[in-house]
Design a protein around this nucleic acid. Structure first.
Length: 486
RNA sequence: GGCCCCAUCGUCUAGUGGCCUAGGACGUAGCCCUCUCAAGGCUAAAACACGGGUUCGACUCCCGUUGGGGCCA
């Protein structure tokens, strides 16, 4: 029986929750839920200058939106600084670390020399050999010093859950600082101490931390703490194949939320970036993801973020949702867009749900829903140039068609009998010797201003007779003016 | 520059020595459906970076080259 899994997500609140972080969080969460383990949230706010309360809030909100919940935390790393210092001192006590009195100038000189020799810089270890009593003496005199970790000879190896056996020659690491001269603990120390204290069993994080790992393993070993399992997840790349960054545009999770992506689609998409269930499944529910997830199936190759696939997946998830669920989700967007008031929508819940049902198969995001739903509400519409060009090519013909349409609508009593409506319209067209198809298309522009809408009879039924009449009249007037100008 | 990671269609991936004339998905193109656009159905084009080994046999294992990326400086 192995110890229950405890994972953590440890963002630093110096920026919003970006896509890479979101996926790291997701993988941790999926692993915790898959194994029945626990997910700890730790905010690494030790960079006081750049960390803000707003960013912390934004990160928590992003996680919540994605449906990622935590069992422990949020803990704030800045609150355990004393702990980190104590750990550094304990290391010193155990002779696993030593005080280093080298000045900035001396270190700069060492570095410079290394560069001229075309070697990578590692600390020479000059202060390693200072006799302990002599070092204590100098410390007592408050001579400025850092605490350095004594890196042993040999190599540091671990079995990465993603990359397999990974090894580093300790000579390339060099005695690194764990406590700065101002008493501030260094990143690798803080992380290791926190992970130890939080009893983290599995560290799932980005590939960019691989080079920190040997240092952290060395620290665990020196502290006599169990070394967790590591899984280094490949990075997410932008379309230019470079590490995803602000350059690539909207990257905060909140941006995707605003654009109208569904959290279940977004997480589904993110899960498929660097991981696959091993079969041909693409669209997966939250539960399926949890069920199928495993560290072993994470690929070692970094993946390009493909918005088009996200859009498609979002459309898929949208189409599986009921009209009612969709209506509930988009309602605020209609209100924010000033299309309808909350009260109006509340009074027409059933109708609104019907409209959303009509429109959702041809929408990929919630924003699409707003755009396509808008014409169903009273008020003026704009005639889109591309629609006019395609279906109102000749204004005279278009007006002619619309007069037939007006005639038809005038005589049409049953606005809910779709098949009957179509039969009667076709019969009328036959009688007047006009193309039913052309008429419907011209009518579509009159009713919605666009060349895209649900079936014309569904559209009319949903709009209601009076709005349909009004729109046709407006269109005929508009076309009349066009003809005069020409 | 040093260290490290990675390498299958444009993109996400399946593939763990013979099942591969390399499968799926997004995207692209075409067809069907059709009042438009989607959705849906069908079809097509599209990849194992290169060179050496190992092996009866390599997309799969090893080495090198090249390329991409990351971290540190």
């Amino acid at each position: 029986m192995t110890a229950p899994v405890r994972v953590r997500f440890a963002p630093s609140p110096t920026g919003f929750l970006h896509v890479g972080g979101a996926r790291t969080a997701l993988f941790n969460w999926l692993w915790a839920r898959h194994t029945g383990g626990e997910f700890v949230l730790r905010i690494e706010d030790t960079d006081l200058e750049r960390s803000t309360k707003e960013m912390t809030t934004a990160i928590l909100e992003g996680l919540e939106w994605m449906g990622i919940d935590w069992d422990d935390g949020p803990h704030f790393q800045s609150r355990s600084r004393d702990n980190h210092r104590a750990a550094a001192l304990a290391l010193l006590e155990a002779k696993a670390a030593y005080p280093c009195f080298c000045t900035v100038e001396e270190l700069a000189a060492e570095r410079k020399a290394a560069i001229t020799r075309k070697e990578s810089y590692v600390y020479s270890g000059k202060c390693r050999t200072i006799a302990p009593d002599r070092a204590a003496e100098r410390r007592d005199k408050s001579e400025l010093h850092t605490i350095r970790f004594r890196v042993p000879f040999g190599e540091t190896v671990w079995i990465d859950a993603v990359h397999g056996p990974t090894r580093f020659d300790n000579r390339t690491i060099g005695d690194f600082i764990v406590l700065r001269s101002d008493g501030a603990p260094v990143y690798n120390l803080a992380v290791t101490v926190d992970d130890r204290d939080m009893r983290i069993t599995d560290v799932i994080r980005g590939d960019d931390h691989i080079s920190n790992t040997p240092k952290q393993i060395l620290l665990y070993q020196a502290m006599g703490a169990p070394v967790p399992r590591f899984a280094h997840v490949p990075l997410i790349l932008g379309p230019d194949k470079r590490k995803l960054s602000k350059r690539h545009g909207a990257l905060g999770v909140s941006a995707y939320q605003e654009q109208g992506y569904l959290p279940q689609a977004f997480t589904n998409f993110l899960a498929l970036l660097g991981w696959s269930p091993g079969d041909d499944r693409e669209m997966m529910s939250r539960a399926e993801l949890v069920e199928a997830f495993s560290l072993e199936r994470i690929t070692g190759k970094s993946a390009v973020f493909d918005v088009q696939k996200l859009e498609w997946l979002n459309g898929q998830h949208l189409s599986t949702m009921s009209g009612l669920a969709v209506a509930d989700l988009v309602r605020p967007r209609f209100i924010d867009a000033g299309i309808a008031t909350e009260k109006e929508l509340a009074e027409r819940t059933i109708w609104f749900t019907e409209v959303m049902t009509l429109v959702k198969t041809r929408s990929r995001t919630l924003e699409d829903l707003v755009v396509q739903g808008r014409p169903f509400f009273a008020g003026a519409i704009e005639y889109q140039p591309d629609a006019v060009k395609k279906f109102w090519k000749d204004p005279r013909v278009a007006r002619e068609l619309l007069s037939v349409a007006a005639n038809y609508v005038d005589g049409e009593a049953a606005f809910d009998d779709l098949e009957g409506m179509e039969a009667r319209l076709r019969a009328l067209c036959e009688q007047r010797d006009v193309s039913a198809g052309k008429l419907m298309q011209a009518l579509r522009v009159a009713l919605t201003g666009t060349r895209v809408s649900p079936g014309i009879f569904e559209t009319m039924a949903a709009m209601g007779k009076s709005l349909v009449v009004e729109r046709i009249e407006a269109a005929r007037e508009h076309l009349g003016r066009e003809i005069e100008v020409a």
